[in-house]
Design a protein around this nucleic acid. Structure first.
Length: 102
DNA sequence: GCTCTGACGATTT
DNA sequence: GAAATCGCCAGAG
């Protein structure tokens, strides 16, 4: 049962291009709820399909990859495979994808 | 309807 | 600079 919040979050994730990542904070802002990072993160973790929703492209604001349903290692491997520059489980802020204000 | 938990963030010590 | 604490919103029991 997908809630409205999840629909918003997942839809935004689909806008993230390959080789680029976003943070839970930016994602929260994208859904117009910058303080609801906890709820947004929970929504991402509850995604039913890891294919239609690139949840592995969501990282923490600190650059840490954070958690992942398939395992943190798997997440890092996938991101690296897509061209994301990960160093010691961390990602440079320059690789953060900022959602369009539109 | 109230309480607890959660793939987090920012601030303070 | 790193570790610990408090705060935040939404969903589930």
């Amino acid at each position: 049962m997908a809630t409205v919040l999840q629909q918003q979050v997942w839809d935004k994730l689909k806008e993230i291009p390959q080789g680029r990542v976003t943070t839970y904070a930016l994602l929260a802002e994208a859904v117009d709820k910058p303080k609801a990072v906890r709820a947004v993160a929970s929504a991402v973790g509850k995604n039913p399909d890891l294919i239609v929703v690139p949840c592995h492209r969501v990282v923490r604001s600190d650059g840490l990859v954070g958690e992942y349903a398939g395992g943190q290692k798997k997440k890092i491997q996938l991101l690296t495979q897509e061209g994301v520059n990960i160093k010691n489980k961390k990602i440079p802020t320059v690789d953060f994808y900022i959602f369009d204000s539109n």
